[in-house]
Design a protein around this nucleic acid. Structure first.
Lengths: 198, 198, 198, 198
DNA sequence: CAATAATCGAGACGGTACGTCTTGTCTTGGC
DNA sequence: GCCAAGACAAGACGTACCGTCTCGATTATTG
């Protein structure tokens, strides 16, 4: 957090152009869907956004960091807690949404970012901090409620439980085998929850 | 498959140098572990192996194909079927081995290959054909035995069941969160199998 | 020439800061000697002088114009007319001074400015107006005195005569071959003046 | 001089493409005359010649080195020795040719190269070695003949004499004041030679 | 004594050239 | 026909500098 944000006091000099920032992010979003993370070049982002390469490199270390930002910027209202009163219901609804997301246009982008994270620790960190963590938080809440209600097994490690729910869907995404429709989500949820239920 | 392989008839001219081939594969293996898939260049493979770039490009389409070959070449005796008489046992042993593999030095290489597969359909295909398929075959056998024995639920889709076993481990590998030791493998196996058991 | 300078009437608003102007010129002088005309950046001038780039660009079109100003500012009382009564003496003394200047620290700066003038007509103009012209004026005076006195040939074009005196020294400077000490100056002066004498 | 040139033994690997080399030099020549040394970019040379930037940077350190090569390549049969029997004649003819060269299209290119040499010692060296030296050699021959013949003063330093002949013309070129036609050349030659004659 | 107007330092910005790097192809002579 | 060596075209990379701009702050004259 910069001094400015902390104190509300403007720093000297011309302030950063919000227009430029958002144009870069928007252009990157488009390019991610059109040609993908790897084929997209910094030059293209610059041309399409109207920003200069220097400006992009001033605020982001490379195109992958821009892509992470762009990816997050289009994830509004990210998978809220269903809270239906039944953990089984909650998990099922949540997993349907996840599979829907994976199967949609952003799914490929997400898969590419996870792929890139294998080579770039910074992408890995940002992805984990910005996305994985917030998703897991919802699942943790659902889990804790279920355990408190006596609906779920208290003797299963919470992290294990969550990995069992997310893992299979991610596996299907990353191996590109499909099987991410509602029926598949329900099948996976059903079986896992049976193992998790008290 | 080449004409030679099909007919057994030698083609005219100097035959392909096996020494050159294996040197390339070995050099690539080393580089994969030392600097990773992305940082490794075709030039480096050529220099280290003593082969020329032209030779490499003659036999492989690009460095990723070489990497896939190199990766497979070091996977000897890949996860055989434990066949203990208990599907629960078999799955647990098998998952331990998988986690051990993921946690070992080849795990990172595998993760990078899966990462690269998000950008390169050929890598995805080769990886699926060469590794994923053979692994799943073992699990399918275990599953079928368990179902036949009445140990496992016949009403669960086999593919779903297998994804539930592999998925969580791969999820941990790809998000780099660790948790791939024996205890973790056992915990995951236990919980999943409970959901899969009759 | 600004309105203020023309009319003596102060314009409204904050007047130009003399401190800022001289700091820029001084910083530029230092940089010219330390790293040279080409390596010096506008940013460096701004940082070292405490002025902002905007201020520099407000008063000068580019760094070369600043350099010309800075170069002139350190040329105080440049080569006065010796007027010894002998044109031969006058020319010899004058050429000694010129060579001394070329051989000194400002010589390299001057050479770079002449070099830059080959690319930038404005630099060429400013250099010619500010320096070359004033120097030639002194030589013209010496020449005219010598001709009037019957010491020098009246049938030689004055411009040719002056070029013969300055040219060889500049040639040595621009080709970086040295030979700019007093003895060399005397040798050049001697021979040329012999050609110019009646 | 490379090993190959010295021994006549071909080195391993694909030999340097003469076509590529000459295309680069030719394109550079054109660009030098069309837009000048400074405005010309490496990219333009690459585009126009059909070579890649990498190739250019492999064989030349930067565009200035290419420019020097290109400049030399168009100087065929550079100012031969007139050898008329009279040193006065020889010098006059030679200086006419030099002024003609300076006043022609290559003159501006040469001036820019000399200008650039003020910033880049390598350009200075190459220019001196490739051009200045060969020109001076001719003048030295003329001078020596004149002295042997008793036509020229033996007590004048040869280098000084040569600088007196070349210097004024270069001065006119570098200050852009014109005066490089035949009449001007003759006037300069006449006066200087008078100073140099026995 | 406020209002006006031009200055100033700081620094972000679009543009553009630079020189490096990697990829995949091509061209030698030797085996 | 295969191979090592290495030159080549293509083109993305990240850096540097240029000259312009937008801030808030400052400092004069003018009403």
């Amino acid at each position: 957090m910069s001094v400015e944000e902390a104190t509300g006091q403007p720093r000297p000099g011309r302030p950063r152009s919000e227009q430029s920032r958002s144009a870069v992010v928007r252009a990157t979003s488009e390019l991610l869907h059109e040609i993908g993370l790897r084929a997209m070049t910094t030059e293209q982002i610059a041309t399409r956004s109207g920003a200069s390469k220097a400006t992009i490199y001033k605020w982001w270390p490379n195109k992958y960091a821009v892509a992470v930002d762009a990816f997050f910027s289009e994830l509004q209202a990210d998978s809220p807690d269903p809270d239906t009163g039944s953990a089984r219901q909650d998990f099922t609804i949540w997993l349907r949404r996840l599979c829907h997301f994976y199967a949609g246009p952003s799914g490929a982008v997400f898969a590419q970012l996870v792929g890139e994270a294998q080579f770039d620790p910074e992408v890995a960190t940002e992805l984990r901090d910005g996305l994985v963590r917030s998703r897991r938080a919802v699942l943790e809440t659902i889990w804790d409620r279920g355990v408190a209600r006596g609906e779920l097994r208290a003797d299963v490690d919470r992290d294990v439980a969550i990995d069992l729910i997310i893992g299979p869907a991610l596996y299907r995404l990353m191996t590109g085998r499909g099987g991410l429709d509602d029926a598949a989500a329900d099948a996976m949820a059903d079986t896992v929850i049976r193992g998790l239920s008290a």
